[in-house]
Each structure stands twice: as C-alpha cells, then as structure tokens.
Design a protein around this nucleic acid. Structure first.
Lengths: 187, 187
DNA sequence: TGCCAAATATGATGGCCGTCATGTATGTGT
DNA sequence: ACACATACATGACGGCCATCATATTTGGCA
C-alpha cells in the first residue's frame, strides 16, 4: 500500500528514532534491519526505499541522534550530576550516544565514523564553553579531561556486574571531577 | 588424528590466546568460532572438545586475559604515559582488555560479566596502591577517577576518525590527570 | 474520475555462523 | 604390541540476516 508524502517522511523519522534507540541499547551489529522496521511499526520490505543499506542507516542514525541531542549543559554542575547518575547509566537507549556507541563505532564505515567524530567535536566545544575559564587552552584541557572521565565512568558503570561497585564508580568520578574543576589549572 | 596430552593443553592455550586477541580487535560477536580456531592453527571441529560453547570461550578468555595481564603499574607516571600513548591506542589486540571490551561485555553472559568485573576490581585496587596516598579513601577516589579518565580517553581516541583530534584527547587527558594527581586531595 | 507511479508488504535467496554427527588417526594403558 | 579411547578433521544442519523480486494498494496528478 502507498502512503502520503507526509506519512512517508514521518515513517522515515520513526525509523531513525527506532534505530537510534535500538543501536544504543544493543549495538549496531546486534540489531537487524527487520527489528528496526518492526519497532517503527513497519515491515522489512520498505526499508530500501528509505536507505541505501544498513550501513547507510547507521551513518544517518548517528547524525540524527547528535542533531536531536542539543542538550543544555550550560549549568555544568547539573550536567555532571545528570550524566553520572544511576538513571543515566540505566537508560542506555535514551542516554548519551557517545557513551553508548564509542566502542562500536570503530568497526563501522568511514561515513559513520565521520558523523560520530563531528558529534565528539561539538561535545568538547560545548563543554569547553561551559567551563568558561579565562585561559582558553586550560579550559579545553579541562573539557577534554573531564569528558573522558565522564564517558569512561558511565561505560565502566554499565559494564560492571555489581551494583555497589557500579555506583561507586559514578560517585567517586563525579567527586573527583568536581574537585579538579574547582582548582585553578596549572600550565 | 590424536595429539598428546601436552599438545592438547598447548592447543587449548593457543585457542585462548587467539580468542583474546581477536575479541579485543573485533569484539565478541564479530569473531566466529572457526576464525578463532583457524588463528590457533586448528579447524572448527575440535572446538567443542575444549569448550562447552562460544559463550564459555568468551568467559574463559576474559579470565585468561586478566590473569596474564599482571602488568607493572608500580611507576604510575610511566604507566600513565604508556596507557595514553598512540602505540597503546593503535594496538587494540594486545592492549588493555578493559579499554577494548568494556562496551561489549554488557551484552554477554553473567559468567563473562563476572570475570570482567573481577578484572576491574583488581585494576582499581592496584592503581589505588600505586597512588599510595596516606588517606586511604582519597587515594581510592583518585584511582577510580584517573582510571575512568584513562579508559575513556583511550576508547574515545580509538573511535575518532581524525588523527589530530585523537592525539589531542590522549595528550590533554594525560596532562589533566598528571596535574590532578599532583594536587593534594580535598574531602 | 481514472491512470500511473510510488510506498510498503510478502516472500525468496544466498551467505554466514553456532553446533552437532561422524570419520580417522594416534597417544596411552595394559 | 594391541586395543581402545580420544583429539581433531570433515561435513552437514538449522537459524538468522541483509538484500532483492514481486505483489498490492493507494496517493497524486491530469
């Protein structure tokens, strides 16, 4: 059956939304095209009318997530708390795309890696602006270091099979970053 | 054909070695049983004489990596430099199992996750001892924070499709950690 | 209003993979 | 030295998946 132009565009977006969530939850390889389409309320047949291939979907989905993800991290303290919370750890499908997909992206196509790298870049820039120290080089260093610690802590917390240790990783890392951002940086 | 007992044990270890390297390079799912056996110089047929299933191999391979990985991080500065080097970033198959497998472990069996969590635990303990501050709680906080940043930086550096940015992540994170470990910790 | 192109559904195909069945040769204990 | 158990090889099977072929329905335009 045929659908209206608007309906088709809406379907396309639903496919991208489903893919974005499923990829974060299960990784690119573990999600089948049919599964994505089903989650979008369609069957696998129409897929190749929207995308050239699964690799194409992956690349477009990454771009889709990052453009939709213009979260306000103006309040750095609140952002840190939210990022290193157990809620964020436990909601992979709706959480930070970087923390969910960093490791998987290594095995994907150049187009997908490029989209991801652009997402990384803007994330670092936003964090550097939020830190907003007078010394530009120092604030970038803090942004990179703090972000690496944030991503590392969430990825580790999700991997750990012991709730107490997982919580501890989040809490200690948060305290550590807060303490370090409070100090004045040295060259 | 049959082989001697010693030969069989040697074969078993070669399978585990091959699996350890391949899993780190390509992830658990992307590596086939036949591929592991071929890398060990065997065919896929003998596999189930050594392991109950692929999941069993995964769990045992994780334990195998971590027991073989009693690296000396007594000199914390040297360890930091080596860990956050481009050489370590570029040799995934021989590098830190945590950085290579953290994200993948989430989708594996409880046995595999348990083995990984134990590896995490001993890694944190070793780092805490290496930091060796008088205040025990503070050194653990530093160990967790620094380790999260180290793992995060390497995983990010491997994901990034731009050599300059990738190098920058490693370098800035290293400087950031070094600066933070130099300062006295606050409660 | 009616035709046609287009969007999606159903179904098929070829390839890969985990696992198992069976064959074969050779260490190992008697 | 012989017989048997066993470690590995070859080959097969069933399931899943990406992709393609074809059918069906219907929006869009004349």
């Amino acid at each position: 059956m045929r659908v209206s132009r608007d309906q088709m565009q809406a379907n396309r977006l639903r496919i991208l939304d489903s893919a974005s969530r499923l990829f974060r939850e299960k990784g690119f390889e573990a999600v089948s095209v049919a599964e994505v389409m089903k989650a979008a309320g369609l069957t696998h047949g129409g897929f190749y009318g929207h995308f050239e291939s699964k690799d194409d979907l992956i690349a477009q989905a990454i771009g889709h997530i990052f453009t939709a993800q213009d979260d306000g991290q103006g309040d750095l303290g609140a952002y840190l708390n939210a990022y290193l919370s157990s809620q964020h750890r436990d909601s992979v499908g709706e959480g930070c795309p970087t923390a969910a997909l960093v490791a998987d992206i290594r095995r994907e196509t150049p187009a997908a890696r490029l989209a991801m790298t652009e997402g990384f870049r803007s994330q670092i820039d936003r964090m550097a602006k939020a830190i907003a120290e007078p010394g530009a080089a120092a604030s970038r260093r803090q942004a990179v270091g703090a972000w690496a610690a944030m991503v590392g802590a969430v990825v580790l917390a999700r991997a750990i099979d012991d709730p107490a240790l997982s919580d501890e990783i989040l809490d200690e890392t948060r305290s550590w970053i807060e303490g370090n951002l409070g100090e004045t940086s040295k060259t």
